[in-house]
């Protein structure tokens, strides 16, 4: 009862905040600039910003109308450089999925091995710390130059950027499994492989999944930057293409969608995390 009323109140505050935000946005982008007098012949050649003092920033109503237009036909395909938002998002998610899965396949087994050996984990730590903070945009020219294929490069950049949090968290999770549990397993003469899968893995799982959750967030951040650079398809390309046309309305729509998809990806991983969490 108490929680539901808290939820209700929180929801009301959220809606009020949204309404206030939209209201301020609307007021701020009304056409206020003085309109210069110009001949009709000249005005015909000019844009609305110049002729009607329309704000260069679109208002919430413009964005809403445009968004509705996109939602009505999300899967259109007008050739290689113009596809619907649904198709663009699908391309991005597919790229993120591929790069991220590859990172999972490498990071978790590797992290497991490193975590079980204190020597290795100490020896490799400086390398991981140096590689971890590198921006995707810094990897891109190197990837393009060596891999010589832009779509593989994009996947590689996602892979290389999303691998580190997972690797570090797996190492940490495996290394910090309680000594008593391992000792108990040892006294019961449990084999190494069985010990890894039945004791260490479940114990380290919450930490590993937290790492995976951080990584998916990073992968989604990276895809937009990577696609803006390599172009062709994807939501990042869409942002770039509309930026090219100085269509801020479409850029705002893309920002909104990127946020929503990012949130959904995070929620999926959060659900997995809850599934493996155990009370101590």
């Amino acid at each position: 009862m108490k929680t539901s009323s808290l939820r209700l109140r929180a929801g009301l505050v959220s809606i009020a905040l949204l309404a206030a935000f939209l209201g301020i946005w609307h007021l701020a982008t009304r056409s206020t600039a003085p309109v210069a007098t110009m001949s009709p012949e000249y005005a015909k050649l000019m844009g609305l910003t110049a002729t009607q003092g329309k704000s260069a920033m679109p208002g919430p109503l413009d964005v809403g109308a445009k968004l509705w237009e996109h939602l009505k036909r999300p899967f259109y395909d007008n050739g290689p450089n113009d596809k619907g938002l649904g198709i663009q998002l699908a391309y991005s998610i597919a790229r993120v999925g591929t790069g991220y899965l590859l990172a999972v396949l490498v990071a978790i087994p590797l992290g497991f091995l490193i975590g079980m050996s204190p020597l290795l984990s100490k020896a490799l730590d400086p390398f991981i710390q140096v590689l971890k903070p590198i921006s995707p945009l810094a990897w891109m020219p190197l990837a393009l130059y060596t891999i010589k294929d832009s779509s593989v490069s994009a996947i590689f950049v996602i892979f290389i950027c999303s691998i580190w949090p997972m690797l570090l968290n797996t190492v940490f999770g495996v290394a910090s499994v309680r000594k008593e549990w391992i000792n108990v397993a040892r006294t019961l003469e449990v084999g190494t492989i069985r010990r890894a899968f039945t004791v260490i893995l479940p114990a380290a799982a919450p930490t590993i999944l937290t790492g995976m959750r951080i990584s998916i967030g990073i992968a989604w951040l990276v895809i937009v930057a990577a696609e803006m650079l390599v172009g062709g398809t994807g939501i990042g390309y869409f942002v770039w293409n509309e930026w090219n046309n100085l269509s801020i309305t479409n850029v705002i729509i893309a920002i909104l969608l990127i946020g929503i998809v990012g949130m959904l990806l995070d929620q999926i991983l959060a659900r997995f995390t809850r599934m493996v969490t155990f009370p101590e």
């Binding site: 290689p80 832009s150 172009g231």
Partner: peptide, 20 residues
């Protein structure tokens, strides 16, 4: 022929050199 829009001069150079 598929005409592909590209992000910038450096990218178009690299993609042509890479035979994409």
């Amino acid at each position: 022929v598929e005409v592909v829009k590209t992000a910038g001069w450096a990218v178009i150079r690299d993609k042509t050199i890479n035979k994409e």
